[in-house]
Structures are given as structure tokens and as C-alpha cells.
């Protein structure tokens, strides 16, 4: 069980991430991402390549070696940064139980 729990107080880091998903992050955002990307999940969101450098489908990879990758219906991306943002929002919803976009609009 991960010790760090993401809460509404992390919303500035959500804003930071959505502005720049890949690259330099503040220590606070890195901690949020470590929680989201670490081991404490029954599944991981993955990007299944449909066409290299052009199109990806969202998948869920179970922990067990050799388990079938479960495809998330109707979710495809044509841009990796958009994919990162979408996965971040899904994980926020899973972990915090709230829609990050709503929180962002309330806090701005």
C-alpha cells in the first residue's frame, strides 16, 4: 500500500502536469506521479501501438505475467501528450474519486 495518498490539495500539481506532461516536474508533482505510476495497482494503463508514431489504443495491463491486455473500448490517441493527460485524469478519478477537470475549474 502506497503511503502517499493523493488528495484535492494536490490540484496545483494536476495543473502543472496537464500543462507539461513530460519533462521537468516539481517535487510535488513527481510525488503524485510516483503514486500514480508505481506498483500499487492491480493493473497499469498502457498504450498499445496500433500504428507506430501515429495511433495508440488505451489498454489495461494486469499484474500477472502473461495476462491478457484488456483494451479500453473506444479510447484511441493520435498524440502521446494527449494520451498522458487522459491517463492522468483517469488515475486521478480512480484515486481521488473526483473529476480533475471539475476540481481545476473550481480552484481557478
Amino acid at each position: 500500500m502506497a503511503r502517499y495518498q493523493i488528495t484535492e490539495t494536490d490540484i496545483p500539481f494536476a495543473r502543472e502536469f496537464l500543462a507539461q506532461p513530460i519533462g521537468y516536474h516539481s517535487p510535488g508533482l513527481q510525488r503524485v506521479l510516483n503514486r500514480m505510476r508505481g506498483a500499487d495497482w492491480e493493473f497499469k494503463y498502457v498504450l498499445v501501438v496500433e500504428e507506430r508514431y501515429a495511433r495508440w489504443r488505451l489498454g489495461r495491463l494486469a499484474k500477472k505475467r502473461g495476462a491478457k491486455v484488456e483494451m479500453v473500448d473506444d479510447v484511441t490517441y493520435t498524440d502521446l501528450l494527449e494520451a498522458e493527460r487522459d491517463i492522468f485524469k483517469r488515475r486521478w478519478k480512480d484515486l481521488v474519486g473526483q473529476d480533475v477537470e471539475t476540481l481545476l475549474s473550481q480552484s481557478s
Binding site: P21, I22, G23, L33, K44, Y45, V46, L47, V48, V49, R52, W56, G59, L61, V69, L80, A83, E84, I87
Partner: peptide
Amino acid sequence: GRAVELDR
């Protein structure tokens, strides 16, 4: 620092 890509 980003999501895992699974190629074929």
C-alpha cells in the same frame, strides 16, 4: 516518465 507503449 511517461506511459508504457506496447508494440506488437
